[in-house]
Every structure is written in C-alpha cells, then in structure tokens.
Write a protein that binds this DNA or RNA. Structure first.
Lengths: 138, 138
DNA sequence: GAAATTGGTTCCGTTTTAAAAGCAATTTAC
DNA sequence: GTAAATTGCTTTTAAAACGGAACCAATTTC
C-alpha cells in the first residue's frame, strides 16, 4: 500500500486506502461480527495472515479509520474500534454485499442478510450506523 | 487475482473480483468518462500499466462484468462495454466517491459531483443506471 | 510454577505489480 | 502509394506485496 496519491478523484483516493482484498474484511468483522482484538480478527473465514493483519491495522489507525486502545481488563490485549470515518464505510460494505449476493455464488443465509440491509435503504443504514456509534465511539 | 474462493460471504466474494486498486477505476472510466477502447482506458490520470489493464479487462469479461466486441468502423479497435452486472457496480462507485469526498483530500470539483450523486439517493442512481443501460446494452 | 494467550515480528519463498520496450495488423497522412 | 501513426495487446525485467510458518516477551490462567 503505497502512500503517493495518484489523482484527486474521490473514488481513486478511497481505493488507495481500502482498495485491496483484506481491508474491508477487517472493517466487516469489526462492524458485523463484533470483533475487537487482534486474535479475533485473525480468525476470519478467509484466513488473513498475521503479518498482513498487523500492517493493515496500523495503516487504518494511522489514517483515522480505526482507533487502538489498551484493554483495561487485560494488559496484553488491545482494543480496535471504528472511528466515524470507519463507521461511514458501512454503505460501501452494504453495496458490496448486495452486489455479491446478486452476482456471485454467495452463501444463502449471508446473502439474505446482505439483501435485507440493502432493501432497508438509507433508513436501515442510518439505524445501523447509530448502533455502531454507540458500540465504537461510546 | 486467484480464483479460489475464500468464503461464501457476499462482501468477500465481491472483493475477490473487484477488491484491488485498479478494477473499479476501469469501471469508473467506462461509466463516467465514456471510454470504450483500450488506449483510452490506458490514459487515466492514475496511470495503469498496459499489462495490468489487459489482465483486468480479460477477467472482467470472463466474469461477466464487461463485454468485448469488434468495432465495425475500425478493425484494430475493440469496444468494451458494461454488462448489467457492471452497471450494477454503480452504487459501489457512488458510495466510494462519497466516502472519499468526505474523508480524503479530493479534488473540489470531483468531490462536488460525487456528493451530488450521493445526495440524489436511489432515484439519482436509478436514473443514471437507465442512462448507462442505453449506452452500454443498447 | 507450567502452560496457554496476548499482539505482534521475522524470515523466506511465491505471487503480484510497475515500467518500458516491442509487435503485427491496420489505418491515416501526405 | 508509401511512410508514419495507431490499434490492442505481449514480453521482459526488476521491485514490491503477500502468505505461511516459526518465533517472541509479557502476561494471564490453571
């Protein structure tokens, strides 16, 4: 993930940060699966390597999409949370999920969930954003 | 771009195909810039290499997101067009554009365009989809 | 006190990517 | 009619990204 920007196009700038095979899966697990710790995020079905996970988390923190804080109940644990910018990635996850449900061979149950979120339109997204704000921003 | 699927998650499946730094920029240029030919697509501000462009176009055709056809007016030219699946990527482009406009240092004018499309909501997207259908599906 | 758990780091081999040059077929300019 | 330009790629070479496995010190659990 290089840092040199290629153009001022908003789509391009987004892709420079989240345009890869892993970043949005990390966000997905923070948003939908309630994961907060490194070892939890390591356990995704897709099997991210610890090296890649560590690097992505670092960049996401640096770029203001996540925060990293100490777990008060366990000194070795770090807590990763979404920032407002991270929560605002939700519409992207939703549209990706809707497209994948429609055009790829997706798991039935997960496809249904994705379609429901998409069918709910902006109101459903706003509700979920608010819920995420409570969980992640406190 | 490996072909082995990592999970049945719709988001993950979408990212396997379009989760990289280039694919959605190609779609963007087909959808917003009216580009149709290889050399036109090569001229993006971001400077994709001809090797990467060729490989991406091939997979997108294979996966049913684009079509490739001969240009009747010029034997050396090929015409790339969006399929229905390609046109349905528009909401993803729109949300990516909106996020980039809000959280990255985007060009002012392009940010305005992106925000307008997002502000128009689903009706604006549907209108643009119909317009793209006319242009690409004929 | 030994074993397990924590968030990573290090190493190494493979895959992906960028940059540049090249190419045969065709079209355009003169 | 011929030389130059244009077409969609392919080839080559080198650099960067990535995956897998092992490893680590600090801490927590048993």
């Amino acid at each position: 993930m290089s840092t040199k920007e290629r153009s001022g196009c908003p789509i391009s700038l987004s892709l420079e940060l989240i345009g890869d095979r892993w970043t949005l899966l990390i966000i997905r697990d923070l948003a939908f699966a309630g994961k907060r710790h490194f070892r939890e995020l390591l356990q995704s079905d897709e099997g991210i390597s610890s090296r890649t996970l560590a690097e992505r988390l670092q960049t996401l923190v640096d770029e203001g999409v996540l925060t990293r804080s100490d777990d008060p109940t366990h000194r070795l644990k770090a807590i990763y949370r979404l920032t407002e910018a991270g929560i605002d990635l939700l519409p992207i996850l939703a549209t990706l999920g809707a497209w994948g449900s429609k055009y790829r061979k997706a798991d039935k149950d997960l496809a249904r969930v994705a379609k429901e979120l998409a069918a709910g339109g902006e109101p459903a997204l706003e509700r979920m954003k608010k819920s995420l704000s409570k969980e992640h921003l406190g």
